[in-house]
Structure formats: C-alpha cells, structure tokens
C-alpha cells in the first residue's frame, strides 16, 4: 500500500518541504521509498529516504567536568544514531566525567553504546584546578 508522507528536511536551514511516496506494510511502517519530491539538493534526497526506513539524528549535549573552572563540556556524536535511541544515548552521557586539559575534537567515548559513533568534545577544556 502506498501513502505520501510530508516532512521538513533538517539537513540545512533552508528546510525544504519533502514529499515522499512510501510503500507501507499493514502496520503502517515504511518499507520502501517509491518517489521523493521537494528537495533542492542531493543531501535532501539521502535524508528523505533514510527518514522513512531508519530515521537518525546527531546527538549534541554536555558532560560533567571534574576539577575544572567550568562545570560542563559540550560534546557531540561523530555521526548519527537511530532516533528511537536518542534519549537513551543522552541519558548514558550522564555517566561520563572528563578532566582537562582536552583539545576540541578529543574522543571522549569510543563506539558509544555500540552505536558505531564516538562522542567528541566540541570545545577545548583548560587544565583542571
């Protein structure tokens, strides 16, 4: 059964309105993308297709700093992780504590939760006190 799904592309601030014709199963789950319209670039095509079969997002958050002048260090995932696991991943960051000095881009957790992405610092951290 085919249906058309409409959503906004989040790849860039342009925010193209995508229309995707999807072949869905009886449970309403998207099985395959039949056609995609509304994207202004190739990245929109990739995003729109992935959004139907396996929606993914980057995770950005902060982790705790020990012995530092500041309390938190901003971090990000190096790639996207499945949207349904985003909250779980954000919660798991609560257990991480870092201490300076760290350069921006330093890997803080390798293959985080087995999701195939690392967690890296998105700012530098001065030497602890």
């Amino acid at each position: 059964m085919a249906e058309t799904r409409r959503f906004v592309c989040i790849v860039c601030p342009r925010g193209c309105a995508l229309e995707v014709d999807v072949d869905v199963d009886v449970a309403g789950e998207g099985k395959a993308v039949l056609a995609l319209r509304g994207n202004a670039c190739a990245r929109g095509e990739v995003y729109g297709r992935s959004e139907i079969v396996d929606p993914r997002r980057s995770l950005t958050s902060t982790v705790r700093v020990a012995n530092g002048k500041r309390r938190r260090l901003p971090v990000r995932s190096t790639g996207t992780i499945p949207l349904p696991r985003l909250r779980e991943a954000a919660r798991a960051l609560d257990g991480i504590v870092v201490e300076g000095p760290l350069a921006c881009g330093t890997v803080i957790a390798v293959d985080f939760l087995g999701l195939g992405v690392d967690i890296v610092a998105t700012d530098q951290l001065e030497r602890g006190m």
């Binding site: 860039c12 601030p13 980057s58 950005t60 958050s61 902060t62 901003p74 971090v75 990000r76 921006c104 998105t122 700012d123 530098q124």
Partner: peptide, 22 residues
C-alpha cells in the same frame, strides 16, 4: 548553544555553537 547546525553557509559543515566560535 551546544546544538549543531552552525556554519553550514560559511564552512559547509554542521558545527555546534562552541565549535563555530572556536
């Protein structure tokens, strides 16, 4: 602004706020 999405126009990359400022 620890979220990303900064710098696409200027650097062609999705940076977080601190990365863009850095």
């Amino acid at each position: 602004c620890v979220h990303d999405g900064f710098g696409l126009v200027r650097f062609g990359q999705m940076l977080s706020g601190p990365e863009y400022a850095r």
